[in-house]
Design a binder for these strands. Structure first.
Lengths: 167, 167
DNA sequence: GATTTTGTACTCGGATAGGAAGTGTCCGAGTACACATGG
DNA sequence: CCATGTGTACTCGGACACTTCCTATCCGAGTACAAAATC
């Protein structure tokens, strides 16, 4: 039971991109610099998010990443699944069928242990699916009474954001 | 988000040991043979379960493993934590404090993302804590209408179980 | 001066090394039984 | 025949290699802008 470090990077990156104004993008290098992580490595996860349809990319100079959906259409579950993969954490290998005396012949009833583990994971994913990026942003602004965090973001955007050419 | 294969081995082993009659133990080699897995590797996880107080060990000839608690006192969560470790799956490294412009000075408010991830994992663990080994055994017996699974277990016990010397 | 052409700089994208953790295996410490030995 | 001592075989326990996945990095493909050359 362990999640990769990339999940944290991905969520924070999406949250930062969600604060961008429409028509603006942010290069991966800027995201990496803002969070103090390796640009090359962050790029890998951003590609995963892009492949999952969460982020959209703009190539070339003045290019970068932006959200592909509205902030209330992206949940934490979407990000986790995009980065970690969609396969369940517990994978039943049917070890009851192995060994010297398997339950051969009978129509295999579902493994009770597997069912219980999957049910728990379903609860986990349901909880993650409840949290939208919009909610995260809302809580973040609520805790930012004096507007310092918002000011910090704006100052960073002023320097690193790229205005996308109107198509 | 991935659980080791040892979790499955551990749960199945505990379930099998739960079907033992009182005063009987089963060697690790027998558990491994029954499940068709490597004895040496299974032993590692059995030791973890023993260290967590879930299993009790009896050394020497006619020794082996048995449950240390009642079947309704052991949950799936206990086993998962014993094998995988108790640390949470998502570990916040506070990357918002890193980078060129951290949120220095202010008393650090808790990270909203970390809070959401931990809440989801709490739901996961709560669900696992609901399932006791006794429940698993009950479901297993319910699905075993003709008693074939029970007969298989008994036949195996007949050969491999060890009667513990009365102390 | 306007248009076309060319060059450059910047972006993302996928393929490539390094390291940590899980997986699998081995040998040593300890104990109970069985047997041989002595009373 | 019974008690005692000794040996052996079996168990768990922790220390040691191997494989896989995550982490980190590099170089190449593509694009938009800018400048220069041409009409």
């Amino acid at each position: 039971m362990k999640l990769g470090e990339g999940v944290e990077h991905a969520i924070h990156s999406v949250t930062l991109l969600a604060a961008l104004q429409p028509g603006r993008v942010l290069p991966a290098a800027a995201l990496a610099e803002f969070h103090g992580v390796s640009p090359s490595y962050l790029l890998k996860h951003l590609q995963a998010l892009s492949g999952a349809g969460i982020l959209a990319t703009v190539p070339g100079p003045n290019g970068g990443y932006r959200l592909a959906k509205s902030t209330d259409k992206v949940t934490l579950l979407d990000i986790v699944l995009a980065v970690e993969g969609a396969q369940p954490a517990f994978r039943c290998t049917e070890i009851r069928q192995r060994g010297p005396n398997p339950i051969g012949g009978v129509p295999t009833a579902p493994c009770e242990i597997n069912a219980a583990m999957l049910k728990a994971e379903r609860a986990y994913r349901t909880e993650l699916a409840k949290v939208r990026i919009a909610d995260i942003l809302g809580e973040l602004d609520s805790n930012d009474e004096d507007g310092r965090i918002d000011a910090r973001r704006c100052a960073f955007f002023e320097v690193r954001e790229r205005r996308q050419a109107l198509s």
